[in-house]
Design a protein around this nucleic acid. Structure first.
Length: 392
DNA sequence: CGTCTTTGACCTGCGC
DNA sequence: GCGCAGGTCAAAGACG
């Protein structure tokens, strides 16, 4: 009986997602008019990058007063030199070489360690999908990228500049994570066995602040199971990539303590490039407009264009920095943000660092973050920084 | 009709 | 060995 109620609650919540979409648009629209990056809005954009040994279990096994063991929701001022926005101002090389005293350093970026299990990212997405109305096709809704790697939303302004919400990147050093696991009361031997087992699986867990459970990352997933999670009113859903021969799986579950947080765990690597037919938007995949960092996506449909670097760099060797997110949001000609897929999440192995050297500067120099964050945000950040420098 | 979701059953691993 | 929880399978139904 109780289970039934919980499930009903969950379904009801999903039904509300569409409605919340409109609210989100309002929020975003208002925020885009605020140029002060220091403004803290209701929507915190954060990214948590945990050690590679972090996995879903370790996260939720942590005693909780807060949903997650780390301060995912710390309120960081934009003045913080280590703010996420500052990271956006750095190019890819800076990410790689950063070794300052900041609480986060891309030296510790877990993706550099491939003997891993789960890399944990935390992103705060718009709490709802873009303002797609029910009048629009259901496909539009399903395609609307709302995943960490593919956040798309409508905006009434092409200038859309700033999402003034805070964006932080917190890197949990791998050793810290290991130490935490070692502190476990479990026998060391067993822990070692567990770690060995974990090491066999490449996992990326994304904490996403979103009302939407099944975040659309551009790939096609088939749900093959759902299980109730112990001590959680929310079920865990199991998805598998529908591409033949691709064994990538993902698990999606919502935090019981903070229902606004969705944890998506990707497992394994895609054995294919970006989906050729992401929910029926193949046309966008090869849109030449991508060359200019924009797509021709109509205002009535969200598509998942193929990143430019994917068009030309199909067989680049695997690059850890590009391993995270190949998605880049772009603003279309009509002001609609279009997401690219999460190839990085899925660890395609495309070398973004070698791609796009002549155009789309917003893509070029932001390494991992360029995939995680909408290019719009990055661009805005850069612009804002320029403004700040001008005023100094 | 094809695709996707739902859901109960089954399998597996782990802890006791 | 047993029980529990997580993970997967597969048939049935929903949906466009």
């Amino acid at each position: 009986m109780e289970k039934k109620i919980k499930e009903d609650h969950h379904q009801e919540q999903q039904k509300e997602e569409l409605n919340s979409t409109k609210n989100m648009e309002t929020t975003i629209s208002s925020s885009t008019h605020m140029m002060n990056l220091g403004t803290i809005s209701d929507h915190h954009h954060q990214i948590e990058v945990a050690g590679s040994n972090m996995n879903l279990s370790s996260i939720f096994d942590t005693p909780i007063s807060s949903p997650f063991p780390y301060s995912y929701f710390e309120d960081h001022s934009s003045n913080n030199p280590n703010s996420f926005l500052d990271l956006l101002r750095q190019d890819q090389h800076q990410f790689a070489s950063s070794s300052n005293s900041s609480s986060f350093s891309f030296d510790a970026f877990p993706l550099q360690n491939n003997n891993n299990n789960t890399n944990l990212f935390f992103t705060d997405l718009p709490l709802s999908q873009p303002s797609t109305t029910k009048a629009e096709s259901s496909e539009v809704v399903s395609t609307t990228p709302t995943s960490p790697n593919s956040t798309s939303f409508s905006s009434s302004s092409n200038e859309a500049a700033n999402d003034t919400t805070n964006k932080e990147v917190i890197v949990k050093d791998q050793e810290d994570v290991d130490q935490q696991e070692q502190k476990s009361t479990k026998p060391q031997l067993k822990a070692k066995t567990k770690q060995q087992k974990k090491a066999r699986e490449a996992r990326f867990a994304f904490l996403t602040k979103s009302d939407i459970d099944n975040l659309d990352d551009g790939y096609r997933w088939r749900k093959y199971g759902q299980k109730a999670v112990k001590n959680s009113p929310y079920p865990r859903s199991y998805y598998r990539c529908t591409t033949v021969g691709c064994g990538v799986k993902k698990r999606v579950e919502r935090s019981s303590d903070d229902p606004s947080i969705v944890m998506t765990t990707y497992e394994d690597q895609h054995t294919h490039p970006f989906p050729m037919t992401p929910r029926g938007h193949i046309g966008m995949l090869t849109s030449p407009n991508l060359e200019h960092g924009a797509t021709t996506a109509s205002s009535s449909s969200f598509s998942i264009p193929r990143p430019r670097y994917l068009l030309s760099q199909h067989h680049q060797p695997y690059n850890m920095y590009n391993n995270s997110l190949s998605m880049v949001n772009r603003s279309s000609s009509d002001g609609t943000f279009v997401n690219l897929g999460p190839s990085s999440f899925s660890r395609f192995g495309y070398d973004m660092s070698q791609a796009s050297t002549s155009t789309t500067s917003t893509i070029r120099d932001h390494g991992l973050l360029q995939d995680i964050l909408p290019s719009q945000i990055r661009s805005d950040t850069i612009n804002t920084r320029t403004n700040e420098q001008d005023t100094q």
